[in-house]
Simulated assay, not measured.
Amino acid sequence: MGDRPGAECRWRAGVPAVSEAAEFAVGFIGLGNMGAPMAHRLTDWPGGLVVCDMRPDAVQPFIDAGAKAAETPAELAENCRVVSIVVLDDAQVRTVIAGPDGLLRTAKPGTVLAVHSTISDRTAAELAAECATRGVEFVDAPISGGAPAAQRGALAIMVGGSATAFEAVREPFGRFGSLVIHAGEVGAGTRMKLARNLLHFVAFTAAAEAQRLAEASGLDLAALGKVVRHSDSHTGGPGAIMLRKTTAPVEPDDFWFPILGHVRDLGEKDLSLALDLASRLNIDLPLAQRALHDLGDGLGVGPGPLAKEHS
């Protein structure tokens, strides 16, 4: 299940019976680059860990560490109260949950199936409805932080599902995540992950634009990268301004207005200077131009004089 669709899991072993007590067994399907370090954090889970993956070499280290292994998702679900799923895409998730040897063949009412893969929120809603017909809880629980955070138990986990399901998964998820957020109903976890990754990849695109300007200016790009990582580690990067509960315009007498107005003024100044430099170097910076135009409105305080000057 780790990297290819339609795969079955290997090995078969007995596992403790499902219990409503705290020491319930946890299942883990998909032991790839992300799944393996997450599952390793559960090898000493009090109720036992059951793993499932198509590749014997992925499963064996978990058997050596004391985990049990199941041949198929259906076999795994026989005795696990919570099941984490880390596979490639929507199609694999559907196969693992609702396929011929899927979890729903044997999952008992009250079992929680948690998908950590980033899938469509519509797929999450459809699978949740199918699970509900069997009395099974579904949560979409995408993760952020990458394999290094998984190894340290420091992932951010965004959970979409019922309050009951969230309570069931909070403790096992806390083994591989240092921030476990209940984002809301099913699908909310996925929507939060998509918003988070929107920022991530737009920022990557902005970083590429910044590098073009730096390179044209004759700067050392590796040194620039060091400066960016150093300063972001102190300022928090873009997340530092994500403190309000709304994107509505900020009233002039609001606590946030002078703070965000100051951020806008600094940003417009620096963006204007960067765009002036780019013009002299004959470098096109479309993201910088858009940022100068949109920064004030995005912060909720409206454009400043420099943005109006360049509009």
Rank of each mutant, 00 (worst) to 15 (best):
G2F: 14
G14K: 09
G14M: 04
P16M: 09
V18S: 14
A22P: 02
L31S: 01
G32R: 07
G35V: 09
H40Y: 11
T43D: 10
D44Q: 14
G47E: 07
G48W: 01
L49A: 00
P61I: 07
I63K: 10
D64T: 14
D64Y: 01
G66W: 06
A67W: 01
K68G: 15
K68T: 12
A74I: 05
E78R: 12
N79E: 07
N79Y: 03
C80L: 03
D89F: 07
V96Q: 03
G102I: 02
G102R: 01
L103W: 01
A107Q: 02
K108S: 09
G110F: 02
G110Q: 01
T111N: 09
H116Q: 11
D121P: 10
R122C: 06
R122M: 10
T123C: 11
A124W: 00
C131Q: 01
C131I: 00
A132D: 14
R134Y: 01
V139W: 00
I143R: 00
S144A: 10
G145H: 12
G145Q: 09
G146S: 13
A147Q: 13
P148G: 07
A150I: 10
I157M: 03
V159S: 00
G160W: 00
G161E: 02
T164Q: 15
A168V: 08
R170Y: 04
P172N: 05
F173H: 08
G174T: 04
G174W: 10
I181F: 11
H182M: 08
A183L: 05
G184Q: 08
M192H: 02
R196E: 09
L198I: 07
H200T: 14
H200M: 11
A203G: 12
A203E: 09
F204N: 00
A206V: 07
A206H: 01
A208C: 11
A208D: 13
A214V: 13
S217K: 09
S217W: 02
L219P: 11
D220T: 11
L221H: 07
L221R: 04
L224F: 08
S231E: 13
G239R: 06
A240Q: 06
K245S: 13
T247Y: 02
T247N: 11
V250M: 13
D254Q: 11
F255A: 10
P258N: 03
P258E: 04
I259D: 11
I259S: 05
I259F: 09
I259T: 15
L260H: 10
V263M: 03
V263Y: 04
L266M: 14
L266W: 02
G267Y: 04
D270E: 13
D270C: 10
A274I: 08
L275V: 11
S279E: 14
I283T: 15
L285G: 08
P286W: 05
L287Q: 08
R290F: 06
L292Y: 04
L295G: 07
G302D: 08
P305I: 15
L306H: 07
S311L: 11
